[in-house]
Design a protein around this nucleic acid. Sequence first.
DNA 1: CAAATTTGACCGAG
DNA 2: CTCGGTCAAATTTG
Length: 358
Amino acid sequence: MEDHRRWEQSTLTNELLQGMEAARKLMAEFRTESSVETRDLQVQRILSSYEKALLILKWNASNSNTNSLPKGPVLPSLPPESPISVNVSPFRDDVDGDHPELKPDSKKRKMMPTWMEQLKSSSDNALEGPQDDGFSWRKYGQKDILGAKYPRSYYRCTFRKTQNCWATKQIQRSDEDPSVFDITYRGRHTCSLGNNAPKSPDQQEKKHNYGSDIRPHEPLQEGLVKFRNNLSVDTDNLKNEEMANPFAFLSTSSGYMTPAESYSLPSLALENDPFWGNLSQTDLLSPNTPESHYLPSLSFNMVEFHGLKNQPCSESDITEIISANTSASNSPILDFNFPIDPAQIDPNFPFHTPGFFP
DNA sequence: CAAATTTGACCGAG
DNA sequence: CTCGGTCAAATTTG
């Protein structure tokens, strides 16, 4: 409780400060003749910071009187004008108190933290599938799923062998909207990527073949083409970078910080700040990155399962939650469920600003 | 050549 | 048996 307050306080302050900082930089950059990308980056940061701050405030307000433990997809409304649609709902985590990371035996596999996100590619990427999420995955299977139109792809962390990282994910194209991908993550990253370890750029993998499921299958093309037509695309320079951020597990405090800040941070490699660790360092911090791809996606919707110990869910529960969320994706819901310790300041939600087009 | 993907076989759960 | 998930040999990629 107290922890929460302190956490909120510092996060809020932090976000606002960052927003201000970014705004200043932006101003400076407008004077000089800086690149569009740099400006975008700054704007991105500003928006992100303010959004986070707002969310925190919202959440705080709606939660101040009730108990601090939210359960389920309950969060009162966010500002309706908010372009973001984030939905976080608890699911499960490692429940047994032992050391799960070490041996995710087939049995325990089910007990791994699992969460799901649903994201929509911009029309540019509609055929490609979701963009790189900052990790490197190796596809190990593909299955046709019973009532589903599109096959499901199975990925595991590239470093499973070398670093004993057992994170996996599944990607499945949505039936009704081919540009929407349901991504289910399972297990945390324990690899260097997940640990926010500095990583040589050349090691950074970029190409993902999510689109491969489009190949030997049937009328996909036609549906996609149609979709393309429906969406006017002028978003040429817009690369959609989504970020699945299981922030309930997050522990570090990097993220949308200024490069200086990020670098100076000790970057506590606590199991789970995979996303922000990577993104902030590899993507955000290096203007020389060929692709500047953290521009807003058209829509982003994440469902996160975090597992309350006293509230075990079954697989069927999951799907229920998911579909529920899916259908309600227009009403942004946020359910923070942080077992966070106050020292961890900046969980850095992957909020985007889909409405923003320069 | 190594590393990533493809794809049918395999396996366990139900 | 079916289904979803994984394995692993063959193939592709770079």
